[in-house]
Design a protein around this nucleic acid. Structure first.
Lengths: 199, 199
DNA sequence: GGCCAAAGTTGAACTCTGTCCAAGTTTGTC
DNA sequence: GACAAACTTGGACAGAGTTCAACTTTGGCC
């Protein structure tokens, strides 16, 4: 029995509505481009009123970037599965690569949408905004008092690493290639970025 | 003779208008909070029409985050002053700390505004969006073909470092304290974040 | 099966941001 | 002082996001 079937009817319907709005949005945006689709179009295509649209998504952008509610459970599991005594930098690498693997499909779609739509390209929103918010909390929960800045440095750097790999990656290269780039970046940042004469 | 006096009348007037809009915006936002001030209020307070407001600032947020046009010259100088053969990581540290020193005053103001206004706190915009756009170009201009990702990694990590220090800093502690935190983070990231057993 | 409260949906009216454009004004130049 | 380019202005407009009160659906309970 999947996670999803554990839900009551009410919750399953909600999930269904969420997904049909998301699906309608992505379809329309794919067809016409982000700026040429408005919220009314999306609501109509999803057979839902404008009001309901805003019940599910806080902004139009969110249709592109919000994670599927089920994904949230998956990434929490990733975080909880890390052994308490594992070094933070290692945990961060594992969690992020694990999370990216969950996303593998959407990743390419979103990167293409972003490249095609000026407004999205401008946006600082991310495939993983929510994820990072929770990741920071998780990091905080594992941080002894007094080490907050060092922990934040690790988290922020891990994020920078992943962004770098994402930026360098082309969707056509396939997901494996992305992982490879990400590992390379993690490795370099782990070893230190200062030039040798400063070691 | 300052940079500013080198400008013609037209350009001096433009600068003056820019500054009076910015000043009006910051004053009102300080008094009432970001969400309680609208673009008409700002335009009126700056003795300028709504249209003119949007000639100078692309969005309301930009009044808080756009750099003073003169700042742009200052940071370009910072970039151009770095010797060609200096290691990238060192240049990045110097440029960013230099840039932050230019900003010293505004930094505290902006951090307070951001903390006080939900919409700004949510925003991913930054005191230094424009600066980073140019910094990336500068990095690209110094990057030999084939090393793009490594260069991007350095730039993104340097950014992560600075963000971390900024996040850990309280405006009340004074600017020197910020520099100290930033140096500490640069040093750690320079030496590598991986735990010892991975060295 | 039928009743009820809670959860979810809806339309309508509203505020604000940001865009567009055509007409007016100011500035620098010859 | 005439001209073109640069800047300003007002007004109309589209779309995002908010609010609210009325309506519908659902699940639990007798």
């Amino acid at each position: 029995m999947t996670e999803e079937q554990k839900l009551g009817l009410r919750e399953r319907k909600k999930l269904e509505t969420w997904r049909s709005i998301r699906a309608a949005a992505l379809r329309l945006i794919n067809e016409r481009g982000y700026e040429a689709v408005n919220v009314d179009d999306i609501a109509a295509a999803a057979n839902v009123s404008r009001s309901t649209f805003f019940n599910y998504f806080a902004t139009k952008e969110a249709t592109v970037f919000d994670p599927d509610p089920m994904e949230t459970d998956a990434w929490r599991k990733l975080m909880n599965d890390r052994p308490e005594d594992e070094p933070l930098w290692v945990s961060l690498q594992e969690i992020q690569l694990g999370y990216m693997s969950l996303l593998a499909d959407r990743l390419a779609v979103q990167k293409r949408l972003k490249a095609a739509s000026p407004a999205l390209a401008e946006s600082k929103r991310d495939y993983s905004d929510r994820f990072y918010a929770e990741l920071r909390e998780w990091v905080a929960s594992r941080t002894p008092p007094g080490a907050e800045m060092q922990a934040a440095l690790q988290a922020n750097t891990a994020l920078a690493v992943l962004r770098t790999a994402y930026g360098a990656w082309s969707p056509e290269d396939g997901f494996e290639r992305f992982l490879q780039l990400a590992r390379e970046c993690f490795d370099r940042a782990g070893r230190g970025l200062a030039p040798d004469q400063y070691h």
